[in-house]
Design a protein around this nucleic acid. Structure first.
Lengths: 220, 220
DNA sequence: TTGTGAGTGTAACAATTGTTACACTTTAAA
DNA sequence: TTTAAAGTGTAACAATTGTTACACTCACAA
C-alpha cells in the first residue's frame, strides 16, 4: 500500500497497521487501468470505496451538459463516503482514473460495524466528511462569485495566503476555466487584462501576485 | 419541545424520550428573539447547536458582498453539525432567527461521548450530514447551470417531479433570484418570456408547468 | 377609505461573458 | 531533430445578464 501522505484520512491505515482491523471484515479489491470511468454520477452507492493507490479525478456534469471540474484525488482517500449514509445514496460525481488504481470496497454493513467498534475509524470518518463539507462550501462560495476576475482574485488570494505571493499551479488554463465554470477564452482575457494592469504575473505554471490590494478590490 | 416533524433528525429526540440521554450530559439552552443574527460566518464552531423551536434562515455572504440565500431551517434540527469536526471549525454561513428560537448547545467533547456511547445518535448524525452534503451538491449543480432559464427549468422540474405539475412557492421573486444567484429583473424577464412562450404559468405564488418537454430543452 | 410599503412587470442601456476562429508556442513522442 | 498534439493569446462578434429607473398592483394597517 502507498505510504499515507494525506493527513485527511489516516484512519484506515492506522487500523491495519495496529492490527485493529477485524480479521473477518468483508471487503474486495479492484484494479482499474488508466483513463477509465469507474463510477458514474447517479450510480448506487452501497459500499465505501477507498482509493488505495493511484489517482482519480471527479467531475460533475451539469444538466446542460457542461463539465464542472471538481477535484483530483490522490491515494489513499475514500471516494464520496458521505453518500453512503444519505437518503438516496447515489454518487454525486463521475470518477475517472488518471493512472492505474487500486480500490478497496467495503460493504455498508461492514462500515457500520467498523464505525461502532473502532472509535478511531469513526473519528476519521467524521473529520473527513466535515472537511468534504467544507470543501463543497468553498466551492459554492467560489461559484457564487459572478465575475471572472472576482473568481480569479478569490482563488489567487486563497493560494497565496499561506505560501507567499508565488505558487505553482498544477492545472492548465482549460482546467482552471472548468474549475471556475467559465469559458477558456474568457478566462484568458481576464488573466491577460490583470497582467496588463500589473496585478499578477504568469510564467508558465508559476503564478505571482504583484498587487494584493488591487486583487482584493475585485471582491468588493 | 416541539414535536418532531423533520425526518432528517430524530436522533436527539429519540434519546430523550427513551431516557437514553446521559443524566450527566453537559449542555446549555439559549433563547433568542426574532430577527436576530445569532451565528456569523467565520465564527468558531466548538459545540453542537440544535435548533429546538422556531425557525432560522442561513445565508452565505460571498466575498463580493452579494447574498446567496441558502435555506430556511425549522426546528428541530442541528445547525451545521458537520463543521464541528472539520479542520478549521468555523461556521460557513450566517444564521438569523425568523421567529423566537430556543437553541440547545452541546460541547464538542460531549458530542464525541454521545457518539461513541449512543449508536442511534451516531447513525442520525451520519445520515444528517450525508443529506447535508447532498443538499450542497444539489446547490452546486444549480449554481453551475449558467443560463437563468436553465436554472428555472432545473428548479421547476425538481419541484414538479413529485407533486404533479403545479406547486406553491413560498418565496417571492427577490428571494428566488437570490437563490439562483441572479439579479431580480433578469429573473423576471426570463420568467415572463417563458410565460409568453406558453411553457409555464404563474398565478401569485402558484407555479404551473405547462410544457415539461420545452422546459427540459433548456437543460440541453 | 386611504396611504404606505412590499412585490412585481418591464424598458433602455451598459457590462460582461460566450462563441468561434485562427495564429502562435510549448511539450512530448517518434 | 522533427512532428503532432496540446496549450495559449487574442480578436470580432453574438448572446446573455446586470443596472437603473419607474409604473403598477396588492395587502394591510392607520
Amino acid at each position: 500500500m502507498t505510504k499515507n501522505s494525506n493527513p485527511e484520512w489516516t484512519g484506515f491505515e492506522h487500523l491495519k497497521e495496529d492490527k485493529l482491523f477485524p480479521a473477518d471484515l468483508k471487503y474486495s479489491i479492484k484494479n482499474y487501468p488508466k483513463n477509465n470511468l469507474i463510477l458514474r454520477q447517479g450510480d448506487l452507492c452501497d459500499a465505501l470505496y477507498i482509493l488505495m493507490s493511484g489517482s482519480v479525478k471527479t467531475e460533475m456534469i451539469t444538466e446542460n451538459g457542461n463539465l464542472l471540474g471538481i477535484e483530483i484525488i490522490n491515494a489513499p482517500r475514500p471516494l464520496a463516503p458521505a453518500f453512503l449514509f444519505s437518503g438516496n445514496n447515489r454518487f454525486p460525481v463521475d470518477v475517472t482514473t488518471l493512472e492505474d488504481v487500486e480500490i478497496l470496497k467495503i460493504p455498508k454493513k461492514e462500515v457500520v460495524r467498523l464505525m461502532t467498534t473502532q472509535p478511531d475509524f469513526m473519528q476519521q470518518f467524521l473529520t473527513h466528511n466535515a472537511n468534504r463539507t467544507q470543501f463543497l462550501t468553498n466551492r459554492l462560495q467560489l461559484l457564487s462569485i459572478k465575475t471572472i476576475k472576482g473568481k480569479i482574485a478569490h482563488f489567487l488570494l486563497e493560494q497565496t495566503n499561506e505560501h507567499g505571493s508565488t505558487f505553482t499551479l498544477n492545472r492548465n488554463q482549460t482546467e482552471l476555466a472548468d474549475f471556475f465554470g467559465v469559458a477558456r477564452p474568457s478566462l484568458a482575457r481576464s488573466l491577460s487584462e490583470m497582467i496588463q494592469d500589473g496585478i499578477i504575473r504568469i510564467d508558465k505554471k508559476e503564478y505571482t501576485v504583484l498587487n494584493k490590494k488591487k486583487l482584493r478590490d475585485f471582491l468588493v
